[in-house]
Design a protein around this nucleic acid. Structure first.
Lengths: 131, 131, 131, 131
DNA sequence: GTGGTCTAGACCACG
DNA sequence: GTGGTCTAGACCACG
C-alpha cells in the first residue's frame, strides 16, 4: 500500500496518515486482521517521527479501527467495525457545512456538489479494485 | 444574522467566522454590497478580539468574497464572486477524501454519503429562505 | 481631464489624486498657470471628502508643483518646476528597489524590466497628445 | 545575509522585510530550499516582534516565494517560483505609473528613467555576485 | 523548538 | 470611526 505524505500541507502529518489508512480500509487493501507495520518501521519508511506514526495509530485505535495485539502488534480491527454513529454523523455534517457553504457561494449547484461527493467516494473505493 | 461561535471547538474561531459568513452569503442573508460590521463592533458583539475578526475578514478578502471599501468599510463583493476554480475543486476534493474514506469504512454507502452532502447543502441554502 | 479613483484600492485616495494630477502635468493637459478646481468643487465632483482633496493639493504644493493664489485659487506652478533633486532620486531608487527585486525573482530580465518602465513612462506622456 | 530595517520609515516593517528577502532571492544569497530563520529567532535578531516577521513570511508564502515545511520550517520555494503573471505586471505598471509621472514632470527623460530602472535592477543582482 | 492562534492594548493614517 | 500596523505575552498542536 502506498502512503504519500505532503510535508508542505497544512494538514498535520498524523492526520494524513490516518486518512490514508482509512482509505486503505475503505478500498479493501487493508482487511480485518491485517497487520500494520510497527511504529518504528513505518516511521523509518516514511521518514517521519515515531511520535507521528504513534499518534495516527492511537487515533485509529481510539475510534475502534485498529486493535493492538500483544503478539502480532497492531492489526486492523477484527471484531465489529465502528458504524455510523450519531457522533460521526454530527462530525461529518459539521465538516461538510463549511465546504457546502463555500461551494454554494461559488455557484456550485446542489447536484454538482452531491456529484462531486459521490465521485470522491467512488474514487476511494475503486483505488483498491485493481490491486 | 446570527453568528454562533464555539470557543471550545478545535476549529479556530476565525475559521468558524469565515464559514458562517459564507453561509450567510450562500443563503442570501448577505448580498453583494451589503456592509459588514466593523472589526471592532463585531469583535465586541461576539466577545472576541478584533484581530480574530480581522483575520476572518482578511481570509475572505483574499479569496475575493469581501472587499474593503475606503468609504463604506468592509462590504460583500460587488464585482464578480469567485467561481468554481480548479484550485477550489482540488481543495474540496482533498477535504472530502478524508470524510468519504471514514464514511465508507463505517459502512455508509455511496448514495447515503451523497444524500448527506445534498442535505447539508440544502439546509444551508434554506436557512435564509424565510427571511 | 478625467480623474478616476478606485475606492477599493489600498492606495490612499489622496495619493491617487496626487498621481493623476502629476500625470496631467506630465502629458500636458495641465500647464503652468492652469487653474485647478476649488477643493470644494473637486470634492463634490469626485464624491469624496474635502479633506482628501485638500491633502492632495497640500502635498503637491509642498513639493512645489502647485501654488496658491489669493485670487485665482490653486494653479499649476508658474515659476520653476521642481527638478530632479537628489532627494527625489533617492525616493525613486528606494521605491524601484522593491519592484525590481520581485521582478528579478519572477524571472524578468533587466532589459524587460527597463522596457516596461519605458513603456509606462511613454504611455503617460502620450495620453495627452491627442487632446 | 544582512537585513536592515528603518523603524522610522513610513514603509511598514514587514514590507521592508519582504523586500529585503526578495532581494536576497534575486541576487542568489537565498536559494530554493534554503531555510529561513524561525520567526522567533529572526524577530529577536532584528529586535522586532515575532508577529511582524510572521506577517512578512505569510505574505511571501501567499505569493509562492516561501513554503512552510513541517519538518524543516520555513524554506525558500523549492518548486516552481512564481512567474511573470498578468497580475504581477498590472501591479508593477500601477506602481510605476506614479513614479514615472513625477519623474516626467520633474524633467526626467524617458531614457534617463529607464536607465535608472535598469541601474536599480542591476544593483540588486550584483549585490550577491561577490558572495 | 516551531508555527498557529488568540488576547489586550496602543498608535497612526485615512477620510 | 475605521482598518492597518506593531508590540507583548500566552497557550497549544505538531513533530
Amino acid at each position: 500500500m502506498f502512503i504519500e505524505l505532503d510535508l508542505q500541507s497544512e494538514v498535520p502529518i498524523y492526520t494524513q496518515l490516518v486518512e490514508q489508512l482509512l482509505e486503505g480500509m475503505a478500498n479493501g487493501q487493508l482487511k480485518p486482521g491485517d497487520p500494520l507495520p510497527s511504529v518504528r518501521s513505518l516511521a523509518a519508511d516514511l521518514g517521519i517521527n515515531l511520535h507521528t506514526v504513534n499518534k495516527a495509530y492511537q487515533v485509529l485505535k481510539q475510534d475502534g479501527f485498529l486493535q493492538v495485539h500483544r503478539k502480532q502488534g497492531v492489526v486492523i480491527q477484527t471484531g465489529e467495525m465502528p458504524g455510523i454513529t450519531t457522533e460521526f454523523q454530527e462530525k461529518l455534517a459539521r465538516q461538510l457545512k463549511g465546504m457546502a457553504a463555500e461551494a454554494a457561494v461559488r455557484g456550485m449547484q446542489e447536484i454538482e456538489f452531491a456529484d462531486m461527493c459521490s465521485a470522491v467516494y467512488r474514487q476511494i473505493k475503486e483505488q483498491g479494485a485493481d490491486r
